[in-house]
Design a binder for these strands. Structure first.
Length: 487
RNA sequence: CGGGGCGUAGCGCAGCCCGGUAGCGCGCUUCGUUCGGGACGAAGAGGCCGGAGGUUCAAAUCCUCUCGCCCCGACCA
């Protein structure tokens, strides 16, 4: 009887098998790993310290990369006058349905409603117009770390919330070519961040007409494959051409004496990235964090029976902490839970390495290292730990990327015909690569019938151009595109 | 906005059909024994049963109206 009860409780407590119900697995994991919690206001989320620490690491690595390219941080206001929003026709059309408006202030109806920013292109445009007089004022390279609000109809923690944190970069340039170059440069920053720091392999490419940013000339993105085969847009970079410069009158006098319009760009990555990390690397035991972004890269679990043992073990741990300080982000779980409980807890939280220190280890002057990704155990002498642990973290970082890359490759299929395309979508989970004629009407029909959309038109195209016909329209293909269901 | 589920202790739920002093598990507190893969015993603390109206001697339970949340679709970083 007692045993039966125990088994039941254990099952209750375990996360849903993630193959069975990926969505439920995801929700439970976010809550149980204490990354985030639901907020009192529908669609909003509370990011808890453990989740926020991941975001801080993301910020740190991205910010370094931005600054290397000459970008500086600034802050722009949360509230944007309605008239600003309406200046760029496509922009307001695209965003109108999801803007939240402030209509009252100080107990009085406002003369002009204020939008809570869904993105800052318009208010940026207003300032850039003031700041730019001469070609000597260009380029302007600014990034904002802020929050934005979009009244989403259906929300999911980290992936799509009404309010989310992100960075939005906004640049202004002398020529269209320079803007294009910057757009691609930032896309490459995103790729390198995703692949090197988040260990998420991505496909770089261009968005289709229907998927591009409202008001952009061209939108580029990095697309990642989640554990259930769906696509996640992990970052976007937009070449806005002269569109916003026209609407906001961002002009300068060039060295040939001509007044010219600036070309602008914008680019963003959000807390959605955290959702991506969860869905790419997580397993049935919980989260697996890439060492570079993990709040704790290793957790020390002390093991002891008697008080004397405890003293010895804790002393040994204090020495380890001292030795590893500044080299590895470390935490010690000295709570009075049992070791088994701690193992499970920290596996749930995705800490890359567990360090076990017990009486036997103290006696041997060694520790046990356990990898979160593979579960592999190794015994390491205390003296070797200082060099071995950082190396192990590097191995895990690479291993996570390699595993994810293999999964991406293995689950990217090719289809020649629409029949084949539908068959793949029914029987497999993943991306389908096809020859494509970039026909927007056809894209809409395909979406209605299969829920799959053009995620990206990869930069990586066949040499010498695409030969053959579109898998759907039969017209001559203009590119190869990747279709998938998406978040 | 459509379809489906659900609001009872911090969390997960039972009780509701058939009205009669609010229960279980986890967690929490204290003490003791434990501790190398989710320990055990004992003693405790904790609830306007989402809200408002009704019916009734009596409502978590029946009726009406509301509010909120989650999931699935249309919209999206």
């Amino acid at each position: 009887m007692a045993d039966e009860q125990k088994i039941e409780d254990k099952e209750l407590d375990e996360i849903v098998e993630h193959e069975d119900d990926f969505s439920e697995w995801y929700n439970e994991l976010v809550l149980k790993a204490q990354l985030a919690d639901y907020a009192p206001v529908r669609g909003c989320m509370i990011i808890r310290p453990y989740g926020y620490a991941i975001w801080e690491n993301i910020q740190k690595y991205m910010d370094e990369r931005f600054k290397e390219t000459g970008v500086l941080n600034a802050y722009f206001p949360l509230l944007i006058p309605r008239s600003f929003m309406e200046r760029e026709a496509e922009h307001i059309e695209g965003f109108a349905p999801e803007v939240a408006w402030v209509t009252q202030g100080g107990g009085k109806e406002l003369e002009e409603p204020l939008a809570i920013r869904p993105t800052s292109e318009t208010i940026i445009g207003h300032s850039y117009a003031k700041w730019v007089q001469s070609y000597r004022d260009l380029p302007i390279l600014i990034n904002l770390w802020n929050n934005v609000m979009r009244w989403e109809k259906r929300t999911k923690l980290f992936l799509r919330t009404s309010e989310f944190l992100w960075q939005e970069g906004h640049t202004a340039h002398r020529t269209l070519e320079e803007a294009e170059e910057r757009t691609l440069q930032m896309l490459e920053v995103y790729r390198s961040f995703a692949e090197e720091d988040a260990a998420i392999p991505v496909i770089k490419g261009r968005k289709s007409e229907s998927e591009k940013f409202a008001g952009a000339l061209r939108t580029y993105s990095i697309e990642a494959m989640m554990g259930d085969g769906k696509a996640l847009q992990a970052g976007t970079s937009h070449n806005l051409g002269n569109n916003f410069a026209k609407s906001f009158d961002i002009q300068f006098l060039d060295d040939d004496g001509q007044r010219k319009l600036c070309a602008t760009t914008s680019w963003g990555v959000s807390t959605r990235m955290i959702g991506g990390i969860i869905m790419v690397h997580g397993d049935k035991k919980g989260l697996i964090l890439p060492p570079r972004l993990a709040p704790f890269q290793a957790v020390i679990v002390p093991i002891y029976r008697k008080e004397e043992e405890k003293t010895l073990v804790m002393e040994a741990i204090a020495r380890l902490q001292k030795m590893l300080k500044g080299k590895v982000r470390l935490t010690v779980d000295s709570s009075d839970n049992t070791p088994g409980w701690k193992y499970n807890q920290w596996e749930m939280k995705g800490v890359p390495v567990r360090i076990e220190v017990g009486p036997r280890d103290v006696q041997n002057n060694s520790v046990v290292l356990v990898r979160r990704d593979s579960g592999t155990k190794e015994f390491v002498g205390v003296d070797a730990l200082e060099t071995r642990l950082p190396l192990l973290l590097e191995e895990i970082q690479k291993g996570l990327y390699t595993t994810a890359k293999k999964k991406l490759d293995d689950n990217t299929f090719h289809a020649e015909t629409y029949e084949e395309f539908k068959k793949i979508l029914n029987e497999n989970k993943g991306f389908v690569r096809v020859k494509w004629s970039e026909d927007s009407a056809a894209e809409k029909i395909i979406k209605d019938e299969t829920k799959a959309t053009v995620r990206v038109i990869p930069f990586d195209q066949p040499e010498g151009g695409v030969k053959g016909n579109c898998f759907y329209t039969g017209k001559p293909a203009t590119c190869e595109a990747i279709f998938a269901k998406s978040y």
